[in-house]
């Protein structure tokens, strides 16, 4: 069982969270060309090693977070709020 250190709630079992997906994807603007949407939605890396992924603390604070996790070892290198503004506030408060 992976334990994830939620920036809002503290360390919790991963069973409290739900996995989102590749957290490094920057989604194009809604009116961007279809090629950019194909790239963002379908062309995904299957990373062996550290990847940034989105998780939601769905049975906790319901906040989305970005987790840097090693897919080989499950080691988590960092966790931060996915909401940019919130992440900045938390960072400043440290």
């Amino acid at each position: 069982m992976i334990r994830i250190n939620c920036p809002f709630c503290g360390e919790r079992d991963h069973s409290e969270f739900s996995y989102g997906g590749d957290g490094s994807i920057v989604y194009p603007a809604l009116d961007a060309p279809v090629e950019q949407w194909v790239e963002a939605v379908f062309q995904r890396e299957n990373i062996r090693g550290v990847q940034t992924e989105s998780w939601q603390h769905v049975s906790g604070c319901r906040q989305w977070i970005l987790v840097e996790r090693d897919t080989m070892t499950h080691e988590i290198h960092s966790v931060r709020a996915a909401h940019e503004g919130v992440a900045k506030v938390l960072e400043a408060g440290k």
């Binding site: 989604y27 989105s54 939601q56 906040q63 989305w64 996915a82 909401h83 503004g85």
Partner: peptide, 8 residues
């Protein structure tokens, strides 16, 4: 997800 990640 949309409000927190994509359209913050």
């Amino acid at each position: 997800e949309l409000l927190q990640i994509r359209w913050s």
